[in-house]
């Protein structure tokens, strides 16, 4: 059953050096409140798994600015000049992933699969040191599952059972990451006493461990 906590209390579920998934796409569907609290602590050396490193002023981008990210497994860093600077200065390790491959690797971990086969990245730098598997005379890269110790997720709507639903283009990685992390913390904008309609639920509450009533709307 999901537990309701504050963003400050959520910081107790993190340890130095952990792998953390954070939902959101650029400036949309971003959790903020737990990150604001993490910035007040000495927590550090995280491996970040996310679509991108946002901007220096927004969500997970602020963790990069504060040097709390040791390694970023993302599809894009170009919108955060501080990630680019740290990468060029070798202050942060960046493992760039094709975005669809990143999503499927997260899904694989959450769905109990041993990996996925994708044609994306063949004949490019992405294929380096990866196994190529031929199925029906077509080549694919074997991409392994990606899981996390903790996930920080944004949702527009939630109920007391932990069920989640989303407005607009906020679904992005927020829908898949809850399956792939040991501890899942959700920042929800609206939490209803009444159960959400089973027809409209996108993320089932059984994937969610902790719920926070969001202070802002996730866009800063």
């Amino acid at each position: 059953m999901v537990k309701f906590i504050t963003a400050k209390e959520a910081t107790h579920f993190f340890k130095n050096g952990q792998t953390v998934m954070i939902g959101g796409f650029l400036n949309c569907g971003n959790p903020q409140d737990v990150i604001t609290e993490i910035l007040k602590t000495n927590l550090k050396d995280f491996t970040l798994i996310a679509n991108d490193t946002a901007t220096p002023e927004d969500s997970r981008g602020k963790l990069v600015v504060a040097h709390k990210i040791k390694k970023a497994i993302v599809s894009h860093i170009g919108t955060n000049q501080e990630t680019v600077r740290q990468y060029n200065a070798k202050e942060i390790e960046v493992d760039l992933q094709p975005q669809g491959t990143l999503a499927e690797r997260i899904r694989a971990a959450g769905a109990g699969l041993g990996g996925i086969l994708t044609p994306v990245g063949l004949n490019t730098l992405v294929a380096e040191n990866k196994q190529i598997i031929t199925v029906d005379n077509k080549q694919y890269l074997l991409e392994t599952p990606l899981k996390a110790d903790v996930a920080i997720i944004y949702a527009t709507y939630a109920d007391k059972f932990g069920n989640l639903a989303f407005h607009g283009s906020t679904k992005n990685f927020n829908v898949l990451m809850p399956m792939a992390a040991d501890v899942v913390i959700v920042e929800a904008e609206n939490i209803s006493e009444q159960p959400l309609s089973p027809d409209n639920i996108v993320v089932p509450g059984i994937f969610v461990d902790y719920m926070i009533k969001k202070e802002n709307n996730g866009t800063d």
């Binding site: 796409f25 650029l26 400036n27 949309c28 569907g29 679509n51 919108t79 975005q99 669809g100 999503a103 499927e104 899904r107 527009t156 989303f166 407005h167 607009g168 283009s169 906020t170 679904k171 992005n172 990685f173 927020n174 829908v175 898949l176 996108v202 709307n217 996730g218 866009t219």
Partner: peptide, 25 residues
């Protein structure tokens, strides 16, 4: 204005009739 609807460049956009929102998968 709706900060929850953007395109892949991060710009606020609208959605046409018949359109839908999906997750990254």
């Amino acid at each position: 204005r709706d900060p929850h609807i953007i395109n892949a460049g991060g710009f606020g956009v609208t959605i046409n009739d018949g359109g839908c929102f999906v997750d990254s998968l």
